[in-house]
């Protein structure tokens, strides 16, 4: 380990860390916004539910490098545009979160739903005020997996030149220099742990009623 190198490169490393942070968080937030209506549709689709959830899961099997390379052709963006990475990672997170949301909605007891309907909730209000809040613990659990796995997938984008902590790996390999690689790994783990904590905290704040929070 070469501490002088770390001190000398601190500014660059900081920038890469922020990029990595942004590229990990933005796609998960985008996919969550999309996964709520899509998960609801899958949840409501009766016998077609396994089909839709299977289809969503299929996107996760696309090799990430292939997706990074192909997206510019589909989106007509430049190959170095970070938008490509954001879109690719949103697709991956979405593949996970659609199932998470559908499963979360199915944890809500039918008795509770029936009581809500009988009391005179309209369908949209029932979804927003009863079903979704009750699905928060399950969605939080899925979101933690999505966020952490996103942190690791982001580093692959170094291969197509998008700046983030993965750039430290390619740099280290090219220079046969271990310090950047170790620094990158440590910062990735720190970032994943911080984001995981943030999701847990948000889930806790959104479900004070959850008995496992006590």
């Amino acid at each position: 380990m070469n501490l002088d190198w770390i001190i000398a490169e601190a500014g660059t490393i900081g920038t890469l860390f922020l990029w990595h942070f942004g590229l990990s968080v933005v796609p998960v937030l985008l996919s969550l916004v999309l996964a709520i209506p899509l998960g609801w549709l899958a949840h409501r689709s009766g016998f077609m539910r396994p089909f839709w959830l299977g289809l969503a899961g299929l996107f996760y099997t696309i090799p990430s490098l292939a997706l990074f390379v192909l997206l510019p052709l589909v989106l007509h963006t430049r190959i170095l545009d970070p938008i490509n990475v954001v879109v690719a990672l949103t697709i991956y997170a979405l593949a996970m979160l659609v199932r998470t949301v559908a499963d979360g909605l199915s944890t809500v007891s039918p008795e509770t739903l029936q009581a809500a309907t009988a009391m005179g909730y309209r369908p949209a209000a029932r979804f927003l005020r009863v079903e979704l809040p009750l699905a928060v613990p399950a969605i939080t659990a899925g979101l933690r997996v999505a966020v952490v796995s996103n942190v690791s997938i982001v580093s692959i984008a170094a291969l197509i030149g998008t700046p983030q902590l993965g750039s430290l790996f390619t740099q280290g390999l090219q220079l046969r220099f271990l310090t950047p690689i170790v620094t990158g790994i440590v910062l990735c783990i720190v970032l994943a742990a911080l984001l995981d904590l943030a999701v847990v905290w948000a889930g806790f704040r959104l479900s004070p009623w959850n008995r496992s929070n006590k």
């Binding site: 008795e111 509770t112 029936q114 009581a115 809500a116 009988a118 009863v130 009750l134 009623w209």
Partner: peptide, 13 residues
């Protein structure tokens, strides 16, 4: 409307 097991909302006090 009152049902068996009350059907209370678990997320509300």
């Amino acid at each position: 409307y009152v049902i068996q097991h009350a059907g209370l909302f678990p997320h509300r006090t």
